[in-house]
């Protein structure tokens, strides 16, 4: 064996297995062996479908499952889809935005308490945050249906307090849908918030206090900015799934509270693939654009 790196000596003791006198092979290819199966899976069943979705969105809208679909570059599908379904689009984004804001407002104190105040209860509290989510998403949402039902205690209390009219209801309203979204995606807010709060060196907050910050100022000037990565991650992890959700709107709302997810689902159900695809692509593009702008504004590119 000769060395390719200018060390031609062959030590007799070391030569037999050829290891010592020649440079080890650089097995860069092994990275590809490790990567390839999973990467191919994602290309085949995530990227390709996305391309196919875009293609489908440009099919002749008059096609059907029986007659097949023809590629006619029908950009009009987008115009039609937005024309017909602008309202669920706007509604869906609005509901998701409200739910995300609510998650942030109620999730932040919880994450803060776990990170800084829980002491030896920290692990238990973390388990408790996740535990409810071992119960099926749908089963939980059905439980909310019961909680918010017309003769349930929440409506009863709300009526007593005069928050809703005597014949008013919560179920099948936007309120119920937003409540469902908020509840279902809360852990996605709490966990990233907790992670980034946990990382904060507590001495920084003490230093702020030492430098004449009131607790409120210390929070606003030190804790909150340092927890921004968690806020960004949490809001994205909450907003994205809720913007595409249709379960809450279906189980807790009615026809007037439909979100864009409901429309996409029902369009696919009836075989109106081009319209459904056009709506999906629009939703995806909007979300990707919002995520990109949001991440850039928040200055937390390392999130990726």
């Amino acid at each position: 064996m000769t060395s390719s790196a200018g060390a031609p000596s062959v030590a007799p003791e070391l030569a037999p297995d050829g290891d010592a006198s020649s440079p080890p092979r650089r097995r860069r290819s092994s990275a590809w062996f490790l990567l390839l199966p999973g990467a191919l899976w994602l290309v085949a069943f995530f990227l390709t479908p996305m391309v196919q979705l875009v293609a489908t969105s440009l099919y002749d809208p008059s096609g059907s499952e029986e007659t097949g679909y023809a590629m006619t570059w029908a950009w009009g599908n987008y115009v039609d889809a937005l024309d017909f379904y602008l309202e669920p689009f706007v509604r869906g984004f609005a509901y998701s935005a409200i739910a995300t804001a609510l998650c942030l407002v109620i999730g932040y104190p919880l994450a803060y308490a776990i990170a800084f105040k829980a002491g030896r209860w920290k692990n238990l509290m973390l388990v408790l945050v996740i535990a409810p989510f071992f119960t099926s998403f749908l089963v939980r949402t059905l439980a909310w249906k019961l909680i918010l039902s017309d003769n349930g205690f929440v409506v009863g209390i709300a009526k007593t307090l005069g928050l809703i009219a005597d014949d008013g209801r919560l179920l099948a309203t936007g309120f119920a849908v937003v409540a469902g979204l908020t509840y279902n995606f809360l852990p996605f807010m709490v966990l990233p918030l907790y992670v980034s709060l946990e990382k904060i060196d507590h001495r920084l907050i003490e230093a702020a206090g030492d430098l004449y910050s009131s607790p409120a100022q210390g929070f606003r000037k030190v804790t909150l900015p340092l927890s921004m990565p968690g806020v960004v991650a949490g809001t994205l992890l909450t907003f994205i799934p809720s913007a595409g959700d249709f379960i809450n709107a279906q189980l807790l709302g009615d026809t007037t509270t439909q979100m864009i997810g409901n429309v996409i689902e029902s369009r696919f159900e009836v075989g109106d693939y081009p319209a459904a695809a056009a709506l999906s692509v629009t939703l995806m593009v909007l979300i990707v654009a919002m995520v990109a702008i949001y991440i850039r504004r928040a200055g937390t590119e390392e999130l990726l």
Binding site: A7, V10, L14, D19, S21
Partner: peptide, 22 residues
């Protein structure tokens, strides 16, 4: 670390390219 050029010898043995566990 693998040297770009040169040699590492221990007594009579050339161990330049020997694996760490050898």
């Amino acid at each position: 670390e693998v040297p770009t050029t040169g040699e590492v010898r221990l007594g009579e043995q050339d161990i330049t390219w020997a694996k760490p566990y050898k």
